[in-house]
Nucleic acid binder design. Structure first.
Lengths: 338, 338
DNA sequence: TTGAAAGCGCTAACAA
DNA sequence: TTGTTAGCGCTTTCAA
């Protein structure tokens, strides 16, 4: 690889001059020199050495994307349709802005921070973290951090975060179900913290508002893994007569359930109404098409990237907690039973 | 961030000694010193500076994953279910092996190589590349490269590649269709090079073997984008009576087609049989479940990572062209019409 | 308008 | 067994 020194030498100028024209600090360089240097740079096919730059300049132009994901055989952090859409846009946005993406999945906040520091990462986007990890990361990271879809233990406005009005829209889709005549609605999620907790809360509020029982008993915790899911659905199936509608905290589970019922000979929405949340690629591609809350994963990614870069470039010290709006999309998986 | 020098100073030893114990070159260090250094390292929370290491040692422990993907509004390289499974396992394997992943999507071989060189990337995994780009990359990259799912212009054994016996298994699933009594089978793909060309070739060979016409006319080129797909399917629909079965070069398109036919009131498999290729997450989750060729994206990723690392660590100079076997999975999307 | 020189943190050859 | 030193490629301050 050709170095600045070599370029300088072959031109009979100093490395400083070459470095200056590379960086456009050309106020103090004669037009002629600029042209000669530029030409040589091109001719010799100069490619900067980022390690040297990082070492000297104390910035790396790397943005770390860290993903918390439970370790499961045969499953990975990228596979989930929502995650992959997010990662894809983040990659694209980072690249377009002239930064580099380092991707790291882990369930250990400390490990992630070590990676970030060892590479002198300019900024961090953190996704899927629990409240405690967020706190740890915020307190120890030596670079700007933007969280995606996180909820926090302490003051949420102390964090840079881009999320969704989960509670509000979970309430809205629940109310939609109620308007369609449903009174006995089960809620299903694979955990009870963060985003899922908010969605559950939204569901409860909507139920209570209409004097319907949002009893503990209507919460189904979906177990992990293929067999876990199966077992949960079996349990649900056994109690199917108690409900006329099911609200899944994510489309993925909603679609699996539609298939499960299909296999059992139960028709959605005729015999059971189903709604999801996210509007991922499954929701649009299943039959019946899924009624759900549409959120724009791409937009979340875009805003997150924009935010870290704003902070990296010191155009903002802090961006705060951004909660996006969503949209109810009515499709074919709910029956009006009024 | 604390440096080796600081650790050394606070202990009254030299940086060399500290560096040596960090790297386990402890043959020439007294046990007592080792212990003291280790303790201090821990106490001060020493984190190595990778830029400095890279600069001094000329290796980075970064593995670049480069993905070729056509630039489309609202679509990205990670979103595709096959890609995301692949990326997910690659990330996990790289991390487990103690390397770092830099992800870069682009449709420009030169750009990708610049990124790789600028970061002194130790090795490269390239995915979705065309034959010409592969050649360019192989010839200019200064580090080991492993391709995934590529086909080449020149001697394929000159490349490190991990792929599938596409032609063979496309032949097998075509023969399966023929055994089920199908004689008029359309083939659909979104391009006609690389993997898709091989699958088309396999289809043609199987047809010819059974004295059936594999006419040019039965090849449908699926146009890009949502409207492109729609148009192609409309064209297919107009000619639906010419065929009893459809062979899609990828599950994604097969599943979209099943839905398309569903919306048109045409039942799969009763009125039209459909098969795909890949066995991605859609194939398992659509109803009727899709008959397809199962390939293991995760395994491809694992082998690719293992291969680059083998070359990086000089345990092999070359791994060659590995073509994996696949498996026919018979599900519910084909009707026996014999 | 241009250049010399120090220093970023680390490794490795060599000396003590 | 331990330490000194040069150098990796680049940026930046300061001097010319």
């Amino acid at each position: 690889m050709v170095t600045i020194k070599e370029v300088a030498f072959s031109l009979g100028v100093s490395p400083t001059t070459v470095s200056n024209v590379i960086h456009g600090n050309t106020k103090e360089v004669s037009p002629r020199t600029i042209a000669r240097v530029r030409e040589k740079l091109d001719e010799l096919h100069y490619i900067p050495n980022m390690s040297a730059r990082t070492l000297a300049g104390n910035f790396s132009r790397i943005i770390g994307l860290i993903i918390r994901y439970p370790v499961m055989e045969g499953k990975n952090a990228v596979q989930d349709p929502f995650n992959s859409e997010l990662i894809g846009t983040i990659e694209a946005e980072i690249r377009k802005a002239g930064f580099f993406l380092m991707l790291y999945a882990s369930d250990n906040a400390q490990e992630v921070l070590n990676v970030a520091h060892t590479w002198n990462v300019d900024g961090l986007i953190a996704f899927g973290m629990g409240a405690k990890e967020c706190q740890e990361i915020k307190e120890t990271a030596k670079m700007p951090v933007v969280f995606i879809d996180c909820y926090f233990l302490d003051d949420e406005n102390a964090y840079n975060n881009v999320g969704l009005k989960d509670r509000e829209y979970a309430g809205k889709i629940t109310e939609y179900l109620i308007e369609q005549g449903h009174k006995r609605i089960a809620f299903l999620a694979d955990n009870r913290v963060g985003v899922d907790f908010e969605r559950w809360s939204g569901y409860c509020q909507a139920m209570e508002k209409h004097n319907l029982p949002a009893v503990e008993d209507s919460f189904f915790m979906i177990s992990y893994g293929d067999t876990g899911i199966q077992q949960t659905y079996d349990a649900l199936y056994a109690r199917k007569d108690e409900f006329t509608a099911l609200f899944f905290a994510s489309d993925y589970y909603a679609c699996l359930a539609i298939n499960y019922f299909y296999d059992k000979g139960i028709r959605v929405p005729d015999e059971m109404s189903v709604v999801g949340f996210d509007d991922n690629i499954f929701a649009r591609n299943i039959r019946p098409k899924l009624t759900t809350v549409q959120q724009n994963a791409g937009e979340k990614g875009r805003i997150a990237v924009e935010s870290v870069i704003k902070m990296i470039e010191k155009k903002a010290a802090f961006v705060g907690n951004i909660r996006l709006d969503a949209e109810l999309v009515i499709r074919d998986s709910v029956k009006n039973i009024t």
